[in-house]
């Protein structure tokens, strides 16, 4: 399964959960996200098993809570529904993170979804910058602690330093990319070419169909309750 397909499917899982305020829709789509992850990255099965164990414990707690609070408009029940939705969204996001390779997604987005290389390589540069900035943040904190007699590094001072260095780094990255012809008008070729084939289209359609069918089923059963908060 291509990264782009995986991305699109996860978006299709998140949207119904965002619009739901019930106890069935979020876990149902979370389960679908887990299936998508298994299809894309079978080696993630141990992670999923651990997540399933945690989900079962959580489900028991939700069931128990639901038995305790039976009044429909009870604020506590509303809080429970919001919590379940948040957990499901977190779970779907975690599943997406486990199955995603950012560089692969960007490469496919540029070649298949026609994302501008200027945007794509700017995002690549940002991906390279983040770990360096994190390390710089740790260094700044260490230097400030020594300087300030063990006190915490002032958040604003650290943020200003990191921001200034990130801006300079971004400027250099843009100059380096431009100097190597990123904006040249001629046709661009790819060192890691990817193509969108029938199999990819079938996988995407099957995933979207499953997501849509699940939604239709939940509505038909009356389990889906619309609501944002």
């Amino acid at each position: 399964m291509k990264s782009l397909t995986f991305f699109a499917l996860n978006v299709s899982f998140v949207l119904p959960v965002l619009a739901s305020l019930d106890l069935v829709t979020p876990p149902a789509y979370l389960a679908l996200a887990a299936v998508a992850l298994l299809v894309r990255r079978p080696e993630r099965a141990p992670h999923l098993a651990a997540a399933l164990a945690a989900a079962l414990i959580l489900a028991f707690w939700v069931w128990l809570s639901n038995r305790l609070w039976t009044v429909g408009d009870d604020p506590a029940r509303r809080a429970l529904l919001l919590a379940v939705r948040s957990w499901a969204l977190t779970g779907i996001s975690a599943s997406f993170a486990l199955g995603m390779r950012p560089a692969e997604l960007l490469n496919e987005a540029m070649q298949i979804a026609r994302l501008s290389p200027r945007v794509g390589f700017a995002l690549y540069a940002a991906l390279n910058t983040l770990p360096r900035l994190a390390e710089e943040g740790r260094q700044i904190d260490a230097v400030h602690r020594v300087r300030l007699g063990g006190g915490r590094s002032p958040v604003l001072a650290r943020a200003v330093t990191l921001l200034a260095r990130a801006v300079r780094s971004g400027e250099r990255a843009a100059q380096s990319l431009a100097a190597r012809g990123l904006e040249s008008p001629g046709p661009r070729t790819w060192y890691r070419p990817v193509a969108w084939g029938r199999r990819d289209a079938a996988q995407l359609l099957a995933g979207l169909a499953a997501s849509g069918a699940l939604f239709a089923l939940l509505v038909a059963l009356g389990a889906f309750r619309f609501g944002f908060y």
Binding site: P102, A103, L106, N107, F121, A122, Y124, A125, L127, N128, T129, R132, R168, S169, R172, A173, Q175, S176, L177
Partner: peptide, 12 residues
């Protein structure tokens, strides 16, 4: 440029 990390922007 002087800072090699600032000018490398690709994943590998």
């Amino acid at each position: 440029f002087q800072n090699p990390y600032a000018q490398l922007a690709c994943p590998s």
